[in-house]
Design a protein around this nucleic acid. Structure first.
Lengths: 213, 213, 213, 213
DNA sequence: TATGAATGAGACTTCATTCAT
DNA sequence: AATGAATGAAGTCTCATTCAT
């Protein structure tokens, strides 16, 4: 009951965070593999290497734990720094981004966050909205910002850069993501991804390359 | 032992189907609202207006009921006959198809099937695969066939029509479907859809309109 | 509602009995294979080739049907006429009876009545008691009567013939029936049965052959 | 990480076993009264004074709980140390063993284990087999070993001691066990048992006492 | 009489959550 | 703070029984 001294408190805090992280890591794996309903607190405790009771020391209930995971996922994903260096030309940037983006989206073995969150979005609208805003919208925004910069240089002629960014990202998915996520096809090969990204890039440039003269 | 008359048989069949339909309708609503795990057989029975036991008279278990729903959804969707009349020109066809497609996808409560199936696809791969093949792939195929026909007429120059069809359908979703499905935005207005479809159509034509000598 | 004529009534009665027999036969098999609780009315209906509803036309409920079966079994068993011809000598009679008795008791594939009735005897004491009286006690009584007759002839010297009959029947089971019924051994071969019966007969005669002056 | 002291460990173990024992005791009563199918987990929980969920903490499912009971029953029964002191003469040993054996078999509520296991043996062959081997066969084996020792001393002349042991045990049951187990008679009086055991012993000795030259 | 569709009570089992230690 | 034993509500599914035809 008595806070012994700052050091103790600080240590406690560190330990707290360590345990918290341990729980988040274990829970993340289980939630992403099995979905919100499919994941049981027992399985999560086992995956995290703590007791079931400990989960409730750090999180009020299963929903709060899930929400924390999704928040984390957002933070994690925003660390995936796609290279939107304004100095690079548009075709190269689009190609490299597209390739990396699809590989991320279609990585095999991925009980994917996007699937898990989408599944629960109707019952937990806040979780869905926040995931969209923190993860998907953020990436769209970055690509849009990059494009905006190149609108200024005249390299592309785009009216609505956010729409254009979204269009490109979706075009990259063509024939790849949906079959993968619906288990109708295995994860696409790197070669196949390259072909599709090439097509998407050409399409994008055909639409948004400024008309000369 | 011989059926008295066709009417009797037909009525019996109808009654059978009527109860079955009643269950499918109630279950569909509950499954789409709450997901596979979130939906309980008790809730489904209540929604369908039958007893719990009756559910098991018509469907072996919860999974089979769900599968039947998904199958139904496929049949339902394939009845949505998009107008792919080869006689119509490409821009008009794309615009009308795009508009109808996005309205279908983003109708309130309408993204639920795709969401629900996607959510369960990892644990029920067959359901996911069949949904993809019967619903999504089928529409892609129809659009692809339409495009193929117009490659013959020289109206468009497309190498891989299936890829192109998929590209167009995804481009139509830009800025509309994901915010909607993640509950980050309400269903888009018809005007907004029109704008996005217009942009998608222009992009498509810019990429695939034949270069005039 | 109107009894047309005696003939019709009589026919109806015959049909009744036929159906009743059909049900009893089907139900008997299912009850003996699966036990009272393990047998379901659906399974019984299927085995009998009638609808579930029909079962309730002939029997008030599952218990009554079961009781009727056990009664039937008693009647059936009492038709198994062991040869207790008083004219035959004791050793031969015992040997032949023992052989037939154990073969009946240990016949393979026999979801046996004895097991099924014994299992339910605590919950349905009347059923147990009646089975014992009508089946087991009756056989004991017949053997006892045979022995009694030969006490008169001086061929055996027995004080309590009922006890002696019971002793012989149990001795015949030695090393055969319990391993069989507990699934610890397959049904015994005819040779093994012969050996055991021989030993039982010798034991019986050693005990009950009159001491010669 | 090191157990503070043996007492603590022992207590923990005891508490564990205490709850387990509580469940086994309650379940045993319910299973033996109602049979495997007739016993419900709810009833068992009530009889054991724990919640339904707790049953599943200690036993994976109903079958495993039942198996544990049967195993227990085996252990319990093997603690019933019949006096097979080789120093005692055969008639005395047989009489005392027979009396104790039948009293055990026909004690009110005591035939239930054999009945319950026999009832389920067809659907759970392993349970049946193990019960036979651990309980019935073990006792037969002990009596057989005792007899074997007395074959050496010439007190009895037996070819197959296991068969002889089985014969004696069954002979002891004559007129007592079956009526009791089928609820056709109450538990036999001690006097009646004595009579029957006396008869069984005489029969056994008549058969297996060596012929004096 | 015979049916079989329909029911609802009750079975087994899981699991989020609590609490004494 | 950490545990894990214990709980009881709720889930899926079965089945004896009823009833309109």
């Amino acid at each position: 009951m008595v806070a012994a001294n700052p050091t103790t408190l600080c240590l406690a805090g560190d330990e707290n965070n360590a345990k918290r992280r341990q729980i988040l890591d274990g829970a993340s794996k289980v939630f992403m593999d099995l979905g919100f309903d499919g994941a049981s607190m027992g399985e999560i405790a086992r995956a995290a290497g703590v007791s079931k009771g400990t989960l409730y020391v750090y999180f009020a209930d299963k929903s709060r734990l899930f929400e924390a995971i999704v928040e984390e996922e957002g933070i994690e994903q925003s660390k995936v720094a796609f290279n939107f260096d304004p100095g690079r030309d548009v075709p190269t940037t689009l190609r490299e981004f597209g390739q990396a983006y699809i590989q991320l989206l279609c990585r095999p073995g991925g009980g994917s966050a996007i699937r898990t969150v989408m599944a629960i979005a109707e019952r937990m609208p806040d979780v869905g909205r926040r995931y969209y805003e923190h993860v998907l919208e953020k990436t769209i925004g970055r690509l849009a910002a990059y494009l905006e910069a190149h609108v200024q240089t005249g390299e592309v002629a785009i009216d609505d850069c956010t729409l254009a960014a979204s269009q490109f990202m979706l075009t990259c998915q063509a024939s790849l993501f949906l079959p993968f996520i619906f288990q109708a096809a295995p994860a696409p090969s790197e070669e196949r991804i390259t072909q599709v990204i090439e097509s998407a890039t050409r399409m994008f440039l055909a639409a948004y390359r400024p008309k000369t003269g």
